[in-house]
């Protein structure tokens, strides 16, 4: 069960034009930086990217936007990126904005083998347009479909060669639910260890969900909003 590949380039080798990708992370936190760099280098185009945010102009998915590799973004919040806004307003980029919990739960549904979920989020808003609704116990819910992604690309703190993953702090965010949801899941980790090095009780994503794993390098881990308090 050795799932190790030698590099990000190898991990993404068969990602092709027009595919649908899930990319873990919240803002710039917990992003698969190495795979994004490899995708930019490879130059695949026409991608549909499912990711909570769209990065900033020079980091994260923003790097792929800059090279016009993304046809469509499916996100919940995209406000930090001028190039994104330009492409959106000019019609070059298609964007589907969906509630954050709906985004996460549609990933979860895919990973749990469920075709759809019901959520009240978006009832009475434009998010509900054209969607089936059901009333349970007097309250309306929207039916939202599980995602169907060719690849899920996630970032974990530690992983073993069998693909078991452990995340660190709020860099966990969307990574575990996306890891469960890809037809093929690629995990990049800060530290790759041997089977047995991770406590089975502490695994967040069991290796069965992960198809390829590698130890990333040169993590920048950029901070979007550096907020501090003064020493008194």
């Amino acid at each position: 069960m050795n799932k190790v590949v030698s590099s990000a380039d190898k991990a993404i080798r068969d990602i092709e034009d027009g595919m649908t990708l899930m990319l873990g992370g919240f803002g710039l936190c917990g992003l698969p930086e190495n795979c994004i760099a490899a995708l930019v280098k490879k130059g695949v185009k026409g991608l549909t990217c499912i990711s909570n945010n769209a990065g900033v102009d020079d980091f994260g998915i923003g790097l792929m936007l800059k090279k016009r590799q993304v046809k469509k973004m499916i996100s919940s919040y995209v406000g930090e990126n001028a190039e994104f806004e330009r492409q959106l307003l000019s019609g070059e980029l298609e964007v589907e904005l969906i509630p954050q919990g709906t985004l996460a739960t549609r990933c979860m549904a895919a990973g749990y083998g469920m075709p759809a979920i019901f959520t009240p989020a978006g009832i009475g808003t434009e998010v509900a347009e054209g969607k089936e609704t059901r009333n349970f116990n007097g309250k309306d819910y929207l039916m939202e479909m599980a995602f169907n992604a060719d690849f899920a690309i996630v970032k974990a703190w530690k992983g073993d060669t069998m693909g078991n993953l452990v995340y660190r702090s709020t860099a966990r965010n969307f990574n575990p639910v996306m890891a469960m949801a890809g037809k093929i899941t690629i995990a990049e980790v800060e530290e790759l260890v041997e089977p047995g090095d991770l406590d089975p009780d502490h695994i967040h994503t069991p290796g069965i969900y992960v198809h390829r794993i590698f130890q990333g390098k040169n993590y920048e881990k950029r901070i979007e909003q550096r907020t501090v308090r003064k020493h008194i």
């Binding site: 919240f26 803002g27 710039l28 936190c29 917990g30 930090e80 703190w157 660190r168 702090s169 709020t170 860099a171 881990k221 950029r222 901070i223 979007e224 909003q225 550096r226 907020t227 501090v228 308090r229 003064k230 020493h231």
Partner: peptide
């Protein structure tokens, strides 16, 4: 609260993407 200067952790942010 926000971290003291020099103790920011890029992995630990809030929903506003602020270091906490």
């Amino acid at each position: 609260p926000f971290p003291f200067e020099g103790e920011e952790d890029a992995d630990t942010i809030n929903a506003g993407k602020q270091t906490i």
